[in-house]
Design a protein around this nucleic acid. Structure first.
Lengths: 140, 140
DNA sequence: CCTTGAAGCTACAGTCGCTGTAGATCGTAT
DNA sequence: ATACGATCTACAGCGACTGTAGCTTCAAGG
């Protein structure tokens, strides 16, 4: 039977079979053709779309954003601004997340250093430091 | 009636009322005393524990790790090594996450730059760049 | 004392993005 | 013809909550 099976798509994209079916249910992939026995068969267009979805997911776009990007692909007009907006929003999100994680790291280091190197009978300072939010510099 | 209501605890810790009840169900908070009418009343010990949980959550510990940390608090012996291990594991996780996000940011910037500044009638390069994983430097 | 309105109660469904299961059927190589 | 892996549907479960419905209780004002 011609076309790619769902497993072939999975192997090519690294997206699990169950996840592909889930994407179909979410409307991110069109209903594919079926064999006489009811198994899905895909063409290259579906393979490309799935690659697009997989890559966008790896970049942290959520499925709604990806659906929006796909819709933009279908209507090439006026897609410029919108696609940029979505991608730029994502950059802002990522930068924000990096910043917060950096503060987190500093705080965790503080917590661990509160006790490191000691091994006397005292209760561990790590636990105390965790309870004590006031010692944090800046919010997180 | 003496003691803090669940709403008071919520206000002091920033943890939502429903979340406090959820923590109770998960065993992170003990079953509190109740008024004659069945409402929860808390003492300062519970308030402190909830603050601990809230702070640890902000630092990204999951509820299982927090349960483990609480158990360590109850048995001060031998808690040193374990508490340090948990916290240090978390630092490693956070650093790893920062690194991956940094690669992500670079990739997103690449995607946006693929088109930025142009506004002719061409289909947007952002969408093309998103489909094209091969152009990524390094994995993500 | 009585009313009112906010706050609390339980129980359960929904969120997101899958993942895992059960039990059946299909496709293909030998 | 048979065996065996791949695929099918349908649904439950994950983590960490959040939201809803339909109640009851508490505390303050009149």
């Amino acid at each position: 039977m011609q076309g790619h099976s769902i497993g072939t798509l999975s192997r090519h994209t690294g997206v699990k079979v169950t996840t592909i079916r889930y994407y179909e249910g979410r409307g991110l992939l069109p209903d594919p053709g079926r064999t006489g026995g009811g198994q899905r068969r895909y063409g290259d267009a579906e393979l490309n779309r799935l690659s697009f979805i997989a890559h966008a997911r790896q970049l942290g776009f959520d499925l709604d954003a990806i659906a929006e990007l796909i819709a933009l692909q279908e209507t090439p007009h006026a897609a410029h601004g919108d696609a940029h907006r979505i991608a730029k929003d994502r950059i802002v999100e990522v930068r924000d997340r990096i910043e917060r994680l950096r503060r987190l790291e500093a705080e965790l280091v503080r917590v661990v250093n509160a006790c490191d190197g000691r091994s006397d009978g005292q209760p561990c300072r790590v636990l105390h430091a965790l309870a004590d939010h006031h010692a944090c510099e800046g919010e997180h």
